[in-house]
């Protein structure tokens, strides 16, 4: 439990980094202004249910992490200023690239790197129509909104296993 407490403390110290990065990543990538629903919360388990879910794992010598971004189809269309439903292939392309950018912005944040260093991203995975529970102990999650549309962000991080 000592290790988990250490992670909990660290993500609590820089909780606003995750929400700030969510806001700026939407602004840069989609050229849309968004606002925090409320400050991101520290949770023991990321949990969300959206039409599209992006999962990006990252790792360095000390830590492993998972970024989760959730968005519903109508909200993605709104972000792109389009009326029609975005098909899975295009949604996967756009959300996947968005996730890469979010991770890049996190890596540019000195508070994040001071606590966790620079993590190398894996390939993004986009899932659809499913409820997700990530048993990846201790993370930070929250929502941002724009024009009555919602976007979910969750970031879970843990010490990397050293017995590999």
């Amino acid at each position: 439990m000592v290790l988990l407490s250490e992670i909990q403390k660290k993500i609590t110290e820089i909780r606003n980094v995750f929400s700030k990065t969510a806001i700026s990543s939407v602004e840069i990538f989609f050229q849309k202004e968004s606002k925090l629903h409320k400050e991101f919360e520290i949770v023991e388990q990321l949990s969300c249910e959206f039409d599209y879910l992006l999962i990006v794992s990252s790792v360095n010598s000390d830590y492993q992490s998972i970024l989760v971004v959730g968005i519903n189809n109508k909200d993605l269309s709104n972000l792109l200023n389009r009326e029609e439903k975005i098909d899975l292939e295009e949604a996967s392309d756009i959300i996947g690239e968005f996730g890469n950018n979010y991770c890049g912005l996190l890596a540019d944040d000195p508070d994040f790197t001071k606590h966790f260093g620079i993590l190398t991203q894996g390939m993004p995975i986009v899932c659809t129509n499913g409820k997700t529970l990530l048993n990846f102990i201790w993370g930070v999650e929250g929502k941002i909104y724009f024009n009555n549309n919602w976007m979910y962000f969750g970031y879970a991080i843990n010490k990397r296993n050293t017995y590999e």
Binding site: Q31, N100, N101
Partner: peptide, 9 residues
Amino acid sequence: IEKPLKFND
């Protein structure tokens, strides 16, 4: 060049 590409900046 590092992403994200800030085309409006």
